[in-house]
Design a protein around this nucleic acid. Structure first.
Lengths: 253, 253
DNA sequence: CCAACCTAACTGTGATCACAGATCACGACA
DNA sequence: TGTCGTGATCTGTGATCACAGTTAGGTTGG
């Protein structure tokens, strides 16, 4: 039921034994940024986020705190924190007395989400085009190549989903607006389950689809430094995907 | 507004005693929507949200889970959940080993936030203008009147802050896009501490300021059903406020 | 008088326990 | 055979305890 979450390997590092180093020597310790000290709850949050955005968790699927905790090898406490965060983003929802599940979007909700994505991600693409560097364009092109390869003869839906995500976010991050990235991530978190669950079930959509032409137009616009054209290409990419979802996926109500 | 699915308001009704109604008759039980059962953690979250958006918590102010718990008369547990949610929205931040505090925005962060607000809230205003009803316009006008009254001779900063918030959200809600409202709420949550902390300290900004003329232009555009003009009025409102903050408030870095 | 150390009181994080409510399946009654 | 009641089992929520890490304050040594 919980799709067997694997804990993405815990960092198996051992801290230096006490008294191993000399005091007073300015070593490489100065360059280490007080190592992140990643909380267990944060790790669980990231794990669940990845699962959601990749469509590994289907809409309506119920999650159990205890099951997830056991699957990840942690206590129930960090899972509670992770679920609380994701529920605050409405990436998960806790029903009044029942369990916690991944939300099922109604048609109206999906359409609203798409409209917002058009505005926000379109803005991000426009701003990114204004300041993007050649190196960053090359990275985007690289992800596009990976996307094409994954869509080829033996289609690899999982790889295509990942490449598509990397491509979009490589573009958005070029805008240099962290809060905007965070906002778009939240949108993807909510739309991910339907979008990618579908792509997983219908790999035929990948080859010859509108995604490849939209991506090509996007890269062309980037190289010409044409913000309006970049936005237009992205709008077509999102719109085409949304249209396909509306036609094929089963949306509530 | 937070995590739990809200069961459409709790009607204060008593269930019929067993055997009181005939079967087959559609009784009032069909209209009851499973009363709310608000969680303690949600209440704490709402409390902290209100404090943040009203500017009652200054940027950089440190919070202690135990102190907050004691102040609200609850255990530390609900506070942890509330802080986790707000930290996920970056409305609060938890420093590596220290305490949790309300974030201090850098100038760059504040400018980015303002740019995003211009896009998102401008979009909301435009969409709202297309479908707003006369009754909804009247509500907006009512809040504007309250704002004017609060800005008058004995300026009441707290009331002005509240009226300004109600005015904006009354407009945004007219667009009928719940996810958009939620997104804007998050933006206000992050910008609230500086914006309203300032307004609390500088009530002179209220009278004769640009807010009143921007609001007047907004209402005029609404009555003429001119989406572009409404967006323009809102853009000016936000920009003027942001300019004032940049000139007076102390922003980090 | 200043600096450094060292102790004591805090911090958030995680685990464990207790509890009310909901779900589900089995069994009894009509 | 269909339907309702009922108990076992599961759910999330909240409280309490334990712990590592940091901070601040007071004291001691120079």
């Amino acid at each position: 039921m919980v799709a067997r979450v694997q804990p993405s390997v815990a960092p198996p590092m051992r801290l230096a034994s006490p008294g191993a180093g000399k005091l007073g020597e300015v070593s490489a310790l100065d360059e280490v940024g007080s190592l992140q000290h990643e909380t267990l709850g944060e790790r669980v949050t990231g794990e669940l986020r990845a699962l959601l955005i990749a469509g590994r968790l289907a809409p309506g699927e119920k999650l159990s705190l205890r099951r997830v905790a056991e699957a990840l090898g942690v206590s129930m406490m960090p899972v509670r924190e992770a679920v609380s965060r994701l529920a605050a983003d409405k990436a998960l929802e806790v029903l009044p007395g029942r369990a916690v599940r991944v939300p099922v979007l109604t048609l109206a909700q999906f359409r609203e989400l798409t409209r917002i994505r058009l505005v926000v991600e379109g803005f991000a693409a426009e701003e990114a085009t204004k300041v993007i560097t050649d190196a960053q364009i090359a990275v985007v092109a690289q992800h596009e190549a990976a996307f094409l390869a994954a869509a080829k003869d033996p289609p690899d839906p999982a790889a295509a989903v990942g490449a598509n995500r990397d491509l979009h976010f490589a573009l958005y991050e070029a805008a240099g607006m962290p809060s905007l990235i965070e906002m778009i991530s939240r949108l993807w978190l909510k739309a991910g389950p339907i979008l990618n669950l579908d792509m997983r079930h219908e790999p035929r959509r990948l080859d010859g689809g509108s995604a490849v032409v939209a991506h090509a137009q996007l890269l062309d616009a980037l190289r010409r430094r044409d913000p309006a054209a970049a936005r237009q290409a992205l709008v077509e990419d999102i719109s085409a995907a949304a249209d396909h979802i509306e036609r094929t996926a089963r949306l509530a109500e």
